[in-house]
Design a protein around this nucleic acid. Sequence first.
DNA 1: GCCTGGCACTCTGCGCTGGTGAGTGCCAAC
DNA 2: GTTGGCACTCACCAGCGCAGAGTGCCAGGC
Lengths: 338, 338
Amino acid sequence: MLSERRLQVLRAIVQDYVGTEEPVGSKALTERHNLGVSPATVRNDMAALEDEGFIAQPHTSAGRIPTDKGYRLFVDKLAGVKPMTPPERRAIQNFLDGAVDLDDVVARTVRLLAQLTRQVAVVQYPSLTRSTVRHVELLSLAPARVMLVLITDTGRVEQRMVDCPAPFGEGSLADLRARLNSRVAGRRFSDVPPLVEDLPEAFDLEDRGTVSAVLSTLLETLVEENEERLMIGGTANLTRFGHDFPLTIRPVLEALEEQVVLLKLLGEAGDSGMTVRIGHENAYEGLNSTSVVSVGYGSGGEAVAKLGVVGPTRMDYPGTMGAVRAVARYVGQILAES
Amino acid sequence: MLSERRLQVLRAIVQDYVGTEEPVGSKALTERHNLGVSPATVRNDMAALEDEGFIAQPHTSAGRIPTDKGYRLFVDKLAGVKPMTPPERRAIQNFLDGAVDLDDVVARTVRLLAQLTRQVAVVQYPSLTRSTVRHVELLSLAPARVMLVLITDTGRVEQRMVDCPAPFGEGSLADLRARLNSRVAGRRFSDVPPLVEDLPEAFDLEDRGTVSAVLSTLLETLVEENEERLMIGGTANLTRFGHDFPLTIRPVLEALEEQVVLLKLLGEAGDSGMTVRIGHENAYEGLNSTSVVSVGYGSGGEAVAKLGVVGPTRMDYPGTMGAVRAVARYVGQILAES
DNA sequence: GCCTGGCACTCTGCGCTGGTGAGTGCCAAC
DNA sequence: GTTGGCACTCACCAGCGCAGAGTGCCAGGC
């Protein structure tokens, strides 16, 4: 078990290293933080912290830098979440309030998060699977061709073409539209399938094929998880990474282009509360020298999607976590209003 | 006027420099291209080319590298467009054929272009202003709240909320929907305004306010140019830029995040045929050391949007132009089919 | 008049060297 | 458990010299 002072030393090391980006030595530590002990004592503590794996030296006789394990301890035990200041809160709200539609909300959120944290921001579109249906619209584009438009409570619109096995009259279409909406409007996606199962039976034999086709397209759309889109911003902040960064930045940019990787990353994060993944805790290799701070957000009490930030393991965790949490909250509010 | 051989020398310099990324000297040139003259002669030619501003030396007594002006001459006079090979064509077609909707088409196009050129790809969504209306749908979400959904011939869907000044019945809504569609379906966006001008007059006095509100929202959507979205991909290729690249890459990433800048960039390019903007020819300062190759694409004979590639001025112009042209063609075909 | 070989010159890049300074580990004393 | 002292270890930097590539110019040849 580490003594209280050793934890303070670790905290000081993390703070200084995050600030200066340079290995921090015992003397500098005692000068900048009044620990009440001499450099020699700090040296002993550092040696102990190194033995435990919380800090490391890049080279013999250089200062210490925190390891992933050290950051983990820092985040779990030593650092709080720094709340946003009132002016910051106002700025967030003002910025998000100007959004005109869902795309705009997401776009603004990404920008905001990237600016606040000066890192790469990732925002997932509100996920379909947890949303509810606001309206289903059917349009006849050709005698045997129907367009299905699904509108969700989060303002998202999905459209699909349906090829009908047989011509489908306007009357039948209106009928289907009405029945469909009376059954599914306001329902959660996951509840829809059993509700429409027996719908084809209400139609004439000749129309049943088409009704089935429409329904199966609808269900497909509902469960289609790979349609979970996301938006990324602030990649220019990657250039602040460090001096060595061709090697560092490349895999990160590649990871960011792979939506699959990112979705997985966000998906792995816990459903409730904020998740911080540090360095090698990230399954994806390219992100081994980055940390990911993510949190769910949603219109009601429940999270419908996630957003977060990708930055170097050497980041200002309290500040980043504060910004992420605040933005998630305000986005949730905005979604609830619209 | 430059002699034929001097042009050949310039071409050789560009080709070698693009290949090796290093300043090219007279001796290396004569060894790699059989110009039929000695290095000394080439040196004279190089001196002349330098006087004219087509090439430059990074330092005294280093080889030469092409200037923007040199690349311009190369692109205009010396280089053709390298056609894709049949297997490449097949690969392009196969890859694009798998797309399921417009988003997917654009996403796949970006990926494809980035892979083919190994550079940053930019694809603009088919522009609304040049498209035609396929269908306008109106949904009553609440007594005084209508959702307007606009479906275009390129498969794009736009939705807007309309707050009605007075409650609007289902009957009136259906009436408006029918009248609206009979007038504007199949029309180009630019033709729509005069066609709907007198529509409110066909309605009861109490409904006219709502009809006007719906119409003005529709017209807004049609002309709203800032809604021109685009998709970017292949940013990881920026890391291949050069050795000095923190300085180079940063402004490029920033430019890529500014959709406004990019849209302007694509907008400035000529409407027909391929446009190549080299280095300082780009108005935006951050892109002064990059070249932009862009071309319009469209479902019919007419271009509805543009796509292109952003890369270092030191790029393989014939190959890049070939890839951009080929991709634009196939995307056009795909859009025409759907 | 154009091309060519030769020559002196100019730089960049690289490896080597030595000095400086920050930081450490250890030890004996408090 | 804490402290001051001390010897030691590296990374970093500046200076040096050398090799190599490339140039410009000039005089001679076709």
